[in-house]
Amino acid sequence: MRHLVVRYGTTTAVDAVSLDIDPGAVVGLLGPSGCGKSTLLRAVTGLDQPSAGSVCWNGADLADVPVHRRGFGLMFQDGQLFPHRDVGGNVEFGLRMAGVDRAGRGRRVAELLELVGLAGFARRAVTTLSGGEQQRVALARALAPRPRLLLLDEPLSALDRALRERLAADLSSILARTRTTALYVTHDHDEAFTVADQVAVMADGRILQTDPPDRLWRHPVDRRVAVFLGYRWFVPATALGLHGAPAACTAALRPESLVVDPAGPLVARVVDQRFARGASTLRVDVGGLGEVEARAPGADLFPVGGCVQLRVDPAAVALLDR
């Protein structure tokens, strides 16, 4: 899509966004709620009309192609299964629209239910399914007509955390196996990094950065992106004594970046200590950095006001040019 703009009245929800998706790739669109990512997705499907700019497929402008002729799949946060049809009736809907005969539909439905791990569910009423099962059916329904592009709008956000993590992994492998080109909208960076080959970070209607997950993680383009990814403190790279870092560079830190180590080069004073997930997190005052947090392995107690030594985990530090 090129310079896409979507306005509602006086608010500009999507502001001159450009994004390319390679065939077979899964692009994650990551941003806080209200940043315009769902609007962008609706403009791609054709459900909303862009005020300016264009959506193209293989170079052909889609402006005059109505929603149902675009050949795009769409999956919503809460499934939006048709309540008056059973599981099979939902999955075969797109095939019926495409004029596939009954036998062909039956084969494809069985194949897809197998793929999403719901083999034999075809005659079940959708109202009897759990939230996770409903999303699996929604995925099967969206994939059945072999869409050229699958658009997923926060598909897992309504599920609880454990289920979300498991389904994100399943979803990722299903998309890879079916070689589906997809645009995956989410506000959860773990989910985006699990599923996507490329992640675009969006805020206030603009895309701030598009990169593969590892690169995005190591080199956020600016502080907003870094903060959104979970980096919380920004210090001059020189203060950390990192090797190979350009002098003018800013280092972004998160709680995992500093580790208590008696042989570490940094000296800090303990302000506070708390426990979570089997490790303890110290709030420390480091000379030259101010107050930051650091991880301590094990369950050792550190007296408040006492001194500890810290080392830097280079893998958990991001470097910003600005």
Binding site: P66, H68, G73, L74, F76, F93, G94, A142
Partner: peptide, 12 residues
């Protein structure tokens, strides 16, 4: 959204 889902699945 169910209607939109149907549209995306190819229904006029």
């Amino acid at each position: 959204r169910p209607e939109q889902a149907a549209r995306a699945l190819g229904a006029s």
